[in-house]
């Protein structure tokens, strides 16, 4: 699967842009947190698309955002 680029994203209807990002992010997040992947992806999709694109290219930034999201999620559920 070819990498998702800003121009590919911009070519998609606004409503589908988060969907496209989610489809790319979910498998990466699932590898880190199999049970919480859906919720974490849902949380991260609230972030700006440009930052989400960056996270797709940068495992480090993805990991750090995922850990942040897990902490928020656990605090929320507590």
């Amino acid at each position: 699967q070819e990498p998702l680029t800003a121009s590919m994203l911009a070519a998609a209807p606004l409503k589908e842009q988060k969907q496209l990002l989610g489809e790319r992010l979910y498998p990466l997040i699932q590898a880190l947190h199999p049970t919480l992947a859906g919720k974490i992806t849902g949380m991260l999709l609230e972030i700006d698309n440009s930052e989400l694109l960056h996270m797709l290219e940068s495992p480090e930034s993805l990991h750090s955002k995922v850990e942040e999201a897990v902490a928020v999620l656990q605090a929320h559920q507590a």
């Binding site: 988060k18 989610g22 489809e23 849902g42 999709l45 999620l73 929320h76």
Partner: peptide, 22 residues
């Protein structure tokens, strides 16, 4: 407008409704 269901869960292959439900 309870936040019990927050965050919305992303399911691959299912159209994302996201924040509409919050």
């Amino acid at each position: 407008n309870s936040n019990i269901n927050w965050p919305p869960e992303f399911c691959p292959g299912v159209p994302w409704k996201g924040l509409q439900n919050i």
